[in-house]
Amino acid sequence: MTTLIRNNPSHSVDIVDMDVFAAPPVAPLDMPQQVLETPRAERPFMTNLIRLLVPRQWA
């Protein structure tokens, strides 16, 4: 938890708990990870062929 300790004009100290009012509301939402590269065995023939023709780190 983060707090800010501030001196106010009356020289007393405010302890402001940032996490109490600064944190966004808690309302979880699922984010399934997207598939951008298919495993080698499932790739179409042409995809594998193209990957063979270009350097490995580029494809």
């Binding site: 940032m18 808690v26 309302a27 979880p28 939402l29 984010m31």
Partner: peptide, 24 residues
């Protein structure tokens, strides 16, 4: 609201993803 991540995983995209996962 203001929140700071201590782990910058995924940079800007990861930052927004983190918000959506927790508060989306």
């Amino acid at each position: 609201f203001y929140r700071r991540r201590t782990d910058n995983r995924g940079r800007k995209a990861g930052n927004i993803e983190d918000f959506i996962r927790k508060s989306g």
